[in-house]
Design a protein around this nucleic acid. Structure first.
Length: 287
DNA sequence: CTGAGTCAAGCTCAA
DNA sequence: TTGAGCTTGACTCAG
């Protein structure tokens, strides 16, 4: 009888790069044919990755944000969606039984708390796209992972603007969750906004170790209500602070286990390590 | 085929 | 005021 395994997540692609949902193009080469070609490759790999995760006992997968490249860009040809529909259908069915939890993580340019209305508008377009992707794959417990963004010189005012944009776009609440970051908003501030919006807070223990605040697991857990909480872990790599390492430091992982207490086996843990599935396997071997 | 340079977007911080 | 760096991968083109 095998010991109980934690619920671990893989992001974007396999380490060897053979399977990927994150192929993209350059804006300069944006054309309908090209988008269809690249998105088709990404979507054809999706069922293979689901199978891969299932076999490796990986319970969560982060889709690449360029799974359909430039989908929220003004110049994007919306007819592409019609062409891709059958591929989404296949993808959806491939995960029907396996129930790998799906997530997506838009980039640092998504700033709902920005002072610039144009930035907010394009951020909403990108989040709408993320939502559509999860809908098309019927990701019932899907998560869009987002940071609060820059502080814009006044963190309280930025938090307030974020909340106001959220209340005007309630559809965001279906999948959105907020993650603490290593430079700007601490876990405690992030939780405060998540609670006001009534959405989950993703606790990143690595960011928390760099950008500290007072916080307990119990209060984070509450923000998820009936949903299964999701957390992130990565370790410091060589070079600059914040760089991800190839693997997860064993001691740090055990610290996360301690932090989560009795909930450890019930929480989804995204493993942000460059060696991806190899790093996951190393952790699985601990249990 | 390979390696170096570059890539939509915002924001922060150092110079 | 400007520009590198963020997180990191992956495209693109020169050679």
């Amino acid at each position: 009888m095998k010991n109980r395994q934690p619920r671990l997540g893989l992001f974007c692609s396999t380490h060897d790069g053979i399977l990927s949902t994150n192929r993209t193009i350059r804006l300069a080469s944006l054309a309908t044919d090209k988008v269809i070609e690249v998105a088709t490759k990404n979507l054809e790999d999706f069922p293979k990755i689901i199978e891969f995760c299932y076999e490796k006992n990986i319970t969560m997968f982060r889709l690449g944000n360029s799974i359909v490249p430039f989908a929220s860009h003004q110049k994007f040809d919306k007819n592409v969606w019609e062409v891709l529909k059958p591929l989404f259908e296949v993808g959806k069915n491939s995960n029907k039984e396996k129930n790998i939890r799906l997530t997506i993580h838009p980039g640092q340019f998504i700033q709902l708390g920005s002072k610039n209305p144009k930035v907010v508008e394009s951020s909403l377009a990108e989040l709408r796209y993320c939502c559509d992707i999860l809908d098309l794959l019927d990701a019932k417990d899907g998560v869009i992972t987002l940071h609060l963004g820059g502080t814009n010189g006044d963190r309280k005012a930025t938090m307030e603007r974020f909340f106001e944009v959220f209340t005007k776009n309630i559809w965001l609440g279906k999948y959105l969750a907020l993650e603490n970051d290593e430079y700007n908003f601490t876990a405690s501030e992030t939780l405060e906004v998540a609670n006001r919006c009534g959405i989950g807070m993703i606790f990143d223990i690595f960011h928390h170790s760099i950008n500290q605040s007072e916080i307990t697991w119990e209060e984070i857990k509450k923000s998820w209500k009936e949903k299964r909480p999701k957390v992130h872990i990565s370790s410091q790599g060589d070079g600059k602070v914040g760089h991800h390492a190839d693997f997860i430091n064993e001691e740090e992982f055990l610290n996360l286990q301690k932090f989560l207490g009795d909930d450890f086996f019930e929480v989804d843990i995204m493993i942000e390590a460059k060696k991806k599935e190899e790093a996951i396997e190393k952790i699985q071997n601990l249990y």
